[in-house]
Design a protein around this nucleic acid. Sequence first.
DNA 1: TCGTATATTCAGTATATATTGAACTGTAAG
DNA 2: CTTACAGTTCAATATATACTGAATATACGA
Lengths: 161, 161
Amino acid sequence: MVSSDLQELLHYVEEWGFFFDRWGLPRTAGRVWGWLSVCEPPEQSAQDLVEVLQVSKASISTNIRLLEGLGLVERASKPGARQGYYRLRADAFESIMRQRIGGVTQARVLAQRGIDLLGSGDPGRAKRLEATRDFYAFLEREMEVLLEHWRERRGREELVD
Amino acid sequence: MVSSDLQELLHYVEEWGFFFDRWGLPRTAGRVWGWLSVCEPPEQSAQDLVEVLQVSKASISTNIRLLEGLGLVERASKPGARQGYYRLRADAFESIMRQRIGGVTQARVLAQRGIDLLGSGDPGRAKRLEATRDFYAFLEREMEVLLEHWRERRGREELVD
DNA sequence: TCGTATATTCAGTATATATTGAACTGTAAG
DNA sequence: CTTACAGTTCAATATATACTGAATATACGA
């Protein structure tokens, strides 16, 4: 290892915390993601996370569950081991894409609801919302295609690994 | 207008507030965006926004500036009029795409920094971060393509309008 | 140049939410 | 069955940030 003592790693992990923060997710969720990205071994117990990240086990529990719900992290119970272990999911990025597509869908639906609300009485007034809906509909379709391309690519790479 | 009294509109506007909220942006910024999406005329003064949205002019000022910064809203000073007017930008969606691409770039850079930090001493350990970087690099490239397609599409539509 | 309307800034407050310690639940070993 | 530990839940706290009212700055018209 060239220059990655624990101090540096934790500082780096903190940056993932900030990144999640700007995304509207708890900072600690980002710290967990960050740590699980660099730790050795890749599987860590809740206790490990409590100790290295210096946060309460309550917060670890909550944020692990959040990350599980987002499809970014999974439980990996080692046979014979008392506690559970956690690690990044191999298909985490598909989940991230799905999250994003979901957000886009919500925006499209919201725009459509506005169009319906304005009704047909005042033609032209809904033009702005139609533009919004069209944009998100476009984005939604294209991101689905992107996700499919990513899946294909991952499939090819797995054969190589 | 079929069924869009002010009450219903404001409730709808509020939903944009929630939407922005989940995006990590101030709720009031979402309310302004929402109102500017449905109001008549499309240009509104800060005073208009204060009255209809029932928030302080300080908050309107702050959030208008935020939306300007994001490239979603623009000033439209009417000739001869004292106050400025605000409206949605026609190219707001390009800005939204740029924002998103920017976020993706940050993630890619952050992953790369982690790879550099781990160094070459422990081959295989950086595999997770490499996967992260590769995903975001993929997404970054593809979203640039998407943005270009959107621009082309908008260009064609403008000729029709 | 002065006066007035409009817009911004800022310190203080309110609000929302992430985090914590402690209590509780479930589970597996002894 | 009992004990010990992992994990969750919950009420209380800490923290961050959005919002407000008041003061200040800016620009425009008389």
